[in-house]
Design a protein around this nucleic acid. Structure first.
Lengths: 157, 157
DNA sequence: AATTAATAAATCGTGTACAACTCAATTGTC
DNA sequence: GACAATTGAGTTGTACACGATTTATTAATT
């Protein structure tokens, strides 16, 4: 048990930095996507579907790390706004196939262009993307490795 | 206007990495803090208050980048669970002073120890914290610099 | 002093997140 | 072929997050 009565500053700062940066990035994309009335989670859902469709809710969830409790309402909103269709699979009536509409297919390039134009306004030339992404993914892998079991082991006092 | 019909992969990946890492980190802390029934946003609120208290809701919001719409219900929950007190200022009855309770003061070191123990399970020795944090903050600064005005300028088609 | 502007919190509405649960459909086993 | 176990989606409840509005209070201006 740790006897130190000071929190590990760097780890706290790291987590807070991710937390803050994620919110700011979210915000940035939200603004960029305003003309299309898409939120960031909706946007990454469409990105995944533009790349591969149709997909079941489960497959989408695997791509985005979201469960049906989050996706179902999100997909219903996308459906209502005309971006996607949701249809029960004939082969397996438990699954729902999510597919892009002709409208979404037609909008795709405009969305890409809009996002690219907004990203152009950022000057992130200074950073080495691949090395930076590798570091983030290393942290994520480490976080994935820690299961609840480990945490239970480190009980309080 | 961008003629490219492909999204800028690296920027999308960077945003998604922050988004995913933030969620995983959140989760990690949430598990670590389970014995204290604290969520991550509640934890960083307490961290800020343990460092400086009392603070007004506004001051807290400046530290955490959260507005009263988020903080007020969060603080009410912390109050109900006995971590903080909320009292209208006498000097200026518009503001509410948030202060830690004796209970929270007594729990502080246990929370620190618990978090430290859990962080010990991560092996993040490979990363250069300061350089990593600098990079994240550089991205955040860049994102802060882009105001809505710029984005309006980059209208769609 | 009276009116206006500015500020601080709270409130309301929408949209994630996610745990826990339900329910229907399918699979595996005997 | 019956039945338990599993799976996929949906539902419910709690907790952020934030824009927009509201209300109360203080500060500024005439």
């Amino acid at each position: 048990m740790s006897e130190n009565t000071t929190p590990r500053l760097l780890d706290n700062q790291l987590c807070f930095a991710f937390y803050s940066a994620s919110k700011k990035f979210n915000h940035f994309y939200q603004d960029a996507l305003k003309p299309f009335h898409l939120t960031y989670p909706q946007y990454i859902t469409m990105l995944a579907l533009w790349e591969t469709s149709p997909m079941t809710v489960r497959e989408l969830g695997d791509h985005l790390n979201l469960d049906s409790g989050t996706l179902t309402p999100l997909l219903k909103r996308l459906e209502k706004q005309g971006w996607i269709t949701r249809t029960r699979s004939d082969q397996d009536e438990r699954q729902v196939n999510v597919d892009v509409t002709p409208f979404a297919a037609a909008q795709r390039d405009e969305v890409y262009a809009r996002v690219n134009d907004c990203v152009d306004l950022l000057s992130l030339d200074g950073i080495d993307y691949n090395q930076f992404l590798d570091q983030i993914r290393e942290v994520m892998t480490e976080l994935d490795g820690i299961s609840n079991d480990h945490l239970i082991g480190a009980k309080m006092s």
